[in-house]
Amino acid sequence: MAAGLASTLTLPVAVFATRYSESYDLLHAGFAIPVGIALGVIALRLASAARHRSEATLGRAGGLGAARVGHGLGLAGLWLAGAALVAVAVYGLLEYIGSTD
């Protein structure tokens, strides 16, 4: 669950940090995209492992609810990172097209 939460918060925190920094621009927050993707993948793998452990112990190990929340947060983090990746790619494409004219 912690990895999913970290994945979800990575990009909003990076964008927030650029707002109050004089040396970084909003485009620099794009460097947090791989971090968000990596944490999202880790969250999904940990959630899957927790679900398998819960199935193997017939639910006695507990943690199935936390695994579901971690899975959802990991997906949300991946979606945010994917949206940011598309935004940066479109910005780069528009900059390229604008520079060729």
Rank of each mutant, 00 (worst) to 15 (best):
A2M: 10
G4L: 09
G4A: 07
G4Y: 09
L5K: 15
A6D: 11
A6K: 01
T8H: 05
L9G: 14
L9Y: 12
V13G: 05
F16S: 07
A17H: 09
T18C: 06
R19L: 13
E22K: 12
S23I: 13
D25G: 07
L27Y: 09
H28Y: 02
A29T: 05
G30I: 02
F31P: 03
P34F: 08
V35W: 11
G36I: 06
I37N: 07
I37S: 07
V41F: 10
A43M: 10
L44H: 10
L46M: 06
S48H: 13
S48D: 14
A50E: 00
A50C: 00
A50Y: 00
R53C: 00
S54N: 12
S54G: 08
L58G: 10
G59W: 03
G59Y: 03
R60A: 11
R60Y: 02
A61Y: 07
G62D: 07
V69A: 10
G70C: 05
G70T: 07
G72L: 06
G74M: 01
G74A: 02
L75I: 15
A76S: 11
A76V: 01
G77Q: 00
G77T: 00
L78R: 03
W79P: 00
W79L: 12
L80W: 00
A89P: 02
G92Q: 08
G92A: 09
L94S: 15
L94N: 14
E95Q: 14
Y96L: 13
I97V: 15
D101L: 06
